[in-house]
Design a protein around this nucleic acid. Structure first.
Length: 266
DNA sequence: AATGGGACCTGCGCGC
DNA sequence: TGCGCGCAGGTCCCAT
């Protein structure tokens, strides 16, 4: 599922491929993915508009358009952006001025496309917490001190810190040797600092390997991301822990599958 | 404030 | 082989 590293990977690829190209048309195969405005206006708003810049904020992609407006794309769990596309398997495709298609695929139709005057005015954006790489250690430890929420649920809360989803929350906690069930305020200063470092490290490494292709995520080229081979706990229930050889356990926290090693994570 | 559940969806893998 | 079911998760929303 696309989290910060996957969305960042897509952003970097799109920068190389589509910036300064024009959208000359839109093919709609399933209008549900268009959240605003209505589909007719959505299409009209994009016609003959160039893509000037690609921005990422948390898990949200933002296209700055030559019209001065913005198109936002949230991939949710199964969204993909594929170039060049075929227009057949997509929920929606953008016809570009180079004669090729940029496909938006989304098997579960949870993804959201919007055209807005200013992306910073979106409620989702206004409530979004800081980017992990812009947050300071002091602020991170301060947040933890004041929260009783389970640490895993907290670091997945986009209002607290943006970009971390279920996969990287599990991986960061394993690397920091912290039990995901712990209350945030029970972490020592040292543990909090360490967790913050591991979050940044795991995200950086995942970006380096162009994301984790579990479920539906692929790069814009259609190639998988390579980071899956470096996962240590995610989706490894009952498999041996790489560190202690004990069994990786799966529980549910905040309604999400949670994988950890009870022996290594305290 | 924290927590738990359901809703949105489809495709996959499982058990029978 | 085939059917039905549970489950996956990002985000929002509601209830307790």
């Amino acid at each position: 599922m696309p989290e910060l590293p996957e969305v960042e990977t897509i952003k970097r690829e799109l920068e190389k491929i589509i910036v300064n190209k024009k959208i000359i048309g839109v093919i709609i195969n399933n209008a549900k993915v268009i959240r605003e405005p209505k589909k007719e206006k959505f299409v009209a708003d994009l016609k003959n508009v160039a893509i000037k810049e690609i921005i990422r904020r948390g898990k949200l992609l933002i296209f700055a358009l030559s019209s001065g407006r913005f198109m936002t794309i949230h991939l949710k769990m199964t969204g993909q952006l594929i170039y060049p596309g075929n227009g057949k398997t997509s929920r929606l495709s953008f016809k570009l001025s180079d004669g090729k298609l940029l496909d938006f695929n989304d098997s579960r139709i949870f993804g959201e496309l919007r055209i807005v005057d200013n992306w910073q005015d979106l409620k989702f954006i206004k409530e979004l917490g800081p980017e992990p790489f812009e947050l300071t250690e002091e602020k991170f430890t301060e947040i933890l001190k004041n929260k009783k929420t389970k640490i895993k649920v907290l670091i997945m809360d986009q209002k607290i810190i943006s970009g971390i989803g279920n996969l990287y929350a599990n991986e960061a906690l394993f690397r920091a040797k912290i039990d995901p069930r712990r209350c945030a305020n029970s972490l020592s200063q040292k543990e909090a600092k360490n967790l913050f470092e591991e979050i940044k490290k795991v995200l950086s490494e995942a970006i380096h390997y162009k994301g984790s292709s579990v479920d539906q995520y692929v790069q814009v080229s259609g190639e998988p991301g390579e980071y899956v081979k470096y996962h240590r706990v995610y989706d490894r229930e009952n498999e041996p822990c790489y560190k202690c050889k004990g069994k990786v356990k799966r529980i549910s926290l905040g309604g999400r599958g949670t994988y950890f090693c009870p022996n290594c994570q305290k």
